[in-house]
Structure formats: C-alpha cells, structure tokens
Amino acid sequence: MRNSGKKIEAFFQLWIAVARILVEMEKNHQVYGGMDPRKCAQSIVAMIEGGLLMVSRQNIQVL
C-alpha cells in the first residue's frame, strides 16, 4: 500500500475508534444524547489532523 493509502487507512481507523468512544460516552450519559457520533468523530479527527499540519508547517519554517 502506498503512503497515501496508509494515511487514508489510519484516518479511518482513528475515525472509527473515536466514533466508538463517543457511542460509549453517550450510553454512559457523558455527552449530549442528540449528537451524531460519526459526524462528531469526523470533526474531531479533522481538528487533530489540522493541528498536526499546523505544527509541522511551523517546524518546517524554523528549519
């Protein structure tokens, strides 16, 4: 699998894991019950990836 394929696979694995955690948290009344765990997981993963991209860009500029 090419590097981009590995990144896509890693994204989906992270997304699935976050969605599962959110479902469990909803069952335990730890988060709002009206949310869509899949959409929230997608947003969380996108924010993490955006933050990592920002950090990597800053590190490149320093070099």
Rank of each mutant, 00 (worst) to 15 (best):
N59W: 05
A46D: 14
S43W: 04
E24P: 00
I21H: 03
L14C: 13
Q42N: 10
I44L: 14
K7N: 06
V23F: 04
G33Q: 14
Q58D: 07
F11D: 00
A17V: 04
S4Y: 05
V62F: 12
L14P: 01
Q61D: 09
C40T: 10
F11S: 03
V45L: 06
K7P: 01
V45D: 01
S4P: 00
M47D: 11
F11A: 05
V18A: 11
S56T: 08
L63G: 12
Q42F: 11
L14M: 08
M35P: 02
L53V: 08
S56G: 04
S4N: 04
E24C: 07
F11C: 00
P37T: 05
Y32H: 11
E49Y: 07
Q30I: 03
V45I: 13
E49P: 00
G50Y: 02
K39F: 06
Q58N: 08
P37Q: 03
K7I: 03
I16K: 13
C40L: 14
M25P: 00
S43L: 11
I60L: 14
E26T: 11
I21W: 01
K7Y: 06
M54E: 14
G51L: 04
K7R: 12
Q13F: 04
M54K: 09
V18S: 03
I21A: 12
G34P: 02
L52D: 06
E24R: 11
W15M: 01
C40S: 09
L52G: 14
N59I: 13
L52E: 09
V23K: 14
M1E: 05
R57S: 13
N59C: 08
E49Q: 07
G51I: 00
A46G: 06
G34K: 09
E26Y: 01
G51T: 03
